[in-house]
Write a protein that binds this DNA or RNA. Structure first.
Length: 271
DNA sequence: AGTGCGGCCTGTCCGC
DNA sequence: TGCGGACAGGCCGCAC
């Protein structure tokens, strides 16, 4: 499942492959994604050239002269570069043919991802304009986190995963940051102290930065791989470890539902 | 206004 | 071995 670091890696990997390439054809094989792909997408894209590839949260911006293609990978989405005549794989939904005899393919078994074309500034797009700050920007800080948590009755984990508060913190990183900070996922947001916010902030940043740097090491061949990066799974201390011993105190890790997401925690270390 | 939940999907895993 | 059902997950949009 692509989290922010994977999306960042995807962007950096795609950039040299598509930059300045002209789109010569677009085939929409399966329009039923998270939102139906606009039928006009093909007409909009043909003749456009890739000016830039950028990330905002978990969204990818493909900037072109007359608009921007906004992509989201959902749970299982991926882009890969193929030859136009390569056999289509199951769940290859959108094929974008480039002028150098290559083809950019959007592949997504669960179809939780999306593709949108917009002519306006993508920052003004309805899916983008209300997003919170980037976690690795100066807009995000312990003080900001504290101020936002103070005015919420929700569970702290639900807040961390709320993209209107901060983007790019999914279930994995929220679970890990809470464990490393000793904060119970179900604690009310307004009961998280400033020192705890400083810990949470620092762990979120460190986790994301480390994952991005590790993602970078596999950057070269990711377009050919499925999106199952194994690197972070080796270092996960809480996510997916229910029933196992806590790495710090050996207490059995437990799991609760928070905002419809499984949340693993150590009942001894987190309160 | 803030919060909670339904729904969109398929691959994987489990029990029978 | 085959089959059905539960589960996982990002995130919008609706209902309360």
């Amino acid at each position: 499942m692509p989290e922010l670091p994977e999306v960042e890696t995807v962007c950096q990997g795609l950039k040299p492959l598509v930059m300045n390439r002209l789109i010569t054809a677009v085939d929409i094989i399966e329009p039923r994604l998270r939102w139906p792909v606009q039928p006009s997408l093909a007409d909009c894209l043909v003749g456009q050239r890739f000016d830039a590839v950028a990330r905002r949260g978990k969204y990818i911006f493909f900037r072109m002269p007359q608009g921007t293609l906004i992509g989201h990978l959902g749970m299982t989405g991926s882009f890969r570069l193929t030859r136009p005549d390569d056999a289509r794989k199951k769940h290859d939904h959108v094929l974008i043919t480039l002028d150098n005899h290559s083809q950019l393919r959007y592949h997504d078994p669960r179809r939780f991802g999306s593709l949108h074309w917009t002519q306006e500034d993508p920052e003004h797009h309805r899916l983008i304009c209300r997003l919170g700050p980037e976690p690795l920007s100066t807009q995000f800080s312990a003080d900001y986190l504290y101020a936002r948590l103070q005015r919420s009755q929700k569970a702290v984990k639900a807040c961390l995963m709320d993209h209107h508060l901060v983007v790019g913190v999914g279930n994995i990183y929220a679970t890990e940051a809470l464990f490393l900070s000793g904060v119970h996922p179900q604690r009310s947001a307004y009961q998280v102290s400033l020192p705890d916010c400083e810990k949470l902030y620092q762990h979120i940043v460190t986790l994301l930065e480390r994952a991005i740097s590790l993602g970078g090491t596999t950057l070269k061949d990711f377009v050919n791989a499925n999106d199952q990066p194994g690197y972070f799974q080796q270092t996960l201390l809480a996510y997916g470890r229910q029933g196992q011993a806590c790495s710090a105190c050996q207490t059995e890790m437990q799991s609760v539902q928070v905002a419809q997401r499984s949340s693993v925690f150590c009942p001894q270390c987190q309160s």
